[in-house]
Computed example of a mutant assay.
Amino acid sequence: MNAAWCVELLAWTAAAQRDWKHAAVMLGAAAMYWQKIGRPLTGLSTLSRYRDNANQDTRNDLGESAFGREFTEAL
């Protein structure tokens, strides 16, 4: 779970810095970790808005196709 949280926070940081490709890869990696755990954002679901914002901002900037490529690179 610690790895999932670390990668999640890296994704949010990359998105805040407008490093969209890195954000998409980190969002994909975080999704992979959370899938293995079985629950996204275990323990702090109130922070899901940060993931949602990072996800939406990254998708908007990269576009769906590029976002999908970068996101699945981590899977």
Results as ranks from 00 to 15, higher is better:
Ser45Asp: 15
Gly63Met: 06
Gln17Arg: 11
Ala23Thr: 07
Phe71Pro: 10
Cys6Gly: 15
Gln35Glu: 14
Gly68Val: 11
Ala30Gly: 09
Tyr50Ile: 10
Arg69Asp: 09
Ser45His: 14
Leu9Arg: 15
Gln17Gly: 08
Met32His: 15
Leu9Tyr: 13
Ser65Gly: 02
Leu62Asn: 06
Ala11Tyr: 07
Cys6Pro: 01
Ala30Thr: 03
Leu10Glu: 12
Ala66Leu: 06
Ala74Leu: 02
Ala14Pro: 02
His22Ser: 12
Asp57Ser: 08
Ser65Asn: 07
Leu27Phe: 00
Phe71Met: 07
Trp12Arg: 06
Leu10Phe: 06
Ala4Met: 09
Thr58His: 03
Ala23Cys: 10
Met26Val: 01
Arg59Ile: 00
Ala11Phe: 00
Gly28Tyr: 06
Ala24Cys: 03
Phe67Glu: 06
Gly68Asn: 15
Met32Gly: 14
Ala16Trp: 08
Gly38Met: 09
Gly63Phe: 10
Ala15Ser: 08
Arg59Asp: 05
Gly43Trp: 00
Asn2Ser: 14
Arg51Ile: 02
Glu70Pro: 01
Lys21Ala: 07
Glu70Ser: 11
Ala23Gly: 09
Leu44Cys: 13
Leu44Lys: 13
Asp57Ala: 12
Ala74Ile: 05
Gly68Glu: 14
Ala74Asp: 05
Asp57Glu: 15
Met32Thr: 14
Met26Arg: 08
Trp12Glu: 03
Ser65Ile: 08
